[in-house]
Design a protein around this nucleic acid. Structure first.
Length: 215
DNA sequence: ACATTAAGTGATT
DNA sequence: AATCACTTAATGT
């Protein structure tokens, strides 16, 4: 199969949202970028100059505490954009979050100056921004609920399920240590809870790999 | 064979 | 649920 053109990729991820002439404008102004798994896309304190439109793959969004330890907030997938960039052109312009590629990912980077212009010109763009702000807010609320109301073992299972979903693969490639870092807990706790989940028949463990049986 | 990294476990707070 | 101290298992060179 031949490699799809930029236009085709864009059409597939955003065609249902934007008019074709607008899609062409996005394509002409956007800078294509490909990131490998684990690559740092944006760090805390960095100025935001570009707005990423995800074409495929997934990005994980993390918050950091005073000691430099992380906490996973949510994942971005194709058709998503970062809500942080939206608040950028409205004044604040330093990133409050860290963005790391969860999988190999293709993005289209659009300069933030375009945001305002498009807001005025395209209704579909306004709708897209409002909608994505809303869904991001809902995801953040879900994360708060998870942290406040769920037990560690439930949180862990949800983490694995979410990770399996965004990677479109029920076998999650990771280590207990990495999970602990994302969840802001210790490796020992993760290992013990994973063992419990395995006994309950919800997952299967191998070295560097966990199969999620309950999705 | 040896070093390194990942994962398992008991005890303590 | 976190931390410590230690063991065992898997993997790379």
């Amino acid at each position: 199969m031949s490699r799809p053109s930029m236009k085709e990729i864009l059409q597939k991820s955003y065609g249902y949202l934007f008019e074709s002439d607008f899609l062409e404008e996005i394509e002409s102004v956007g800078v294509y970028r490909k990131v490998k798994q684990g690559e740092l896309l944006m760090d805390i304190g960095q100025p935001i100059g570009m707005m990423p439109l995800l074409l495929n793959g997934a990005i994980k969004i993390l918050r950091e505490d005073e000691e430099g330890d992380e906490l996973l907030l949510y994942f971005l997938e194709k058709g998503d954009t970062c809500a942080m960039t939206v608040s950028c052109f409205m004044g604040q312009n330093k990133s409050e979050i860290r963005a790391v590629a969860e999988a190999d990912t293709e993005l289209l980077m659009v300069p933030v100056e375009k945001m305002e212009i498009w807001m005025a010109r395209y209704k579909s763009w306004r709708q897209f921004i409002v909608d994505s702000y809303h869904t991001r807010m809902m995801e953040l609320l879900e994360t708060v609920d998870t942290l406040a109301f769920m037990r560690m073992d439930e949180r862990l299972l949800k983490y694995l399920q979410d990770k399996a979903k965004v990677n479109h693969n029920d076998t999650v490639q990771t280590t207990h240590q990495e999970i602990a870092l994302d969840m802001h807990t210790s490796r020992v706790v993760v290992s013990r809870l994973l063992k419990k989940l395995e006994k309950e028949g919800k997952i299967e463990m191998q070295r560097n790999q966990i199969v999620v049986l309950e999705l």
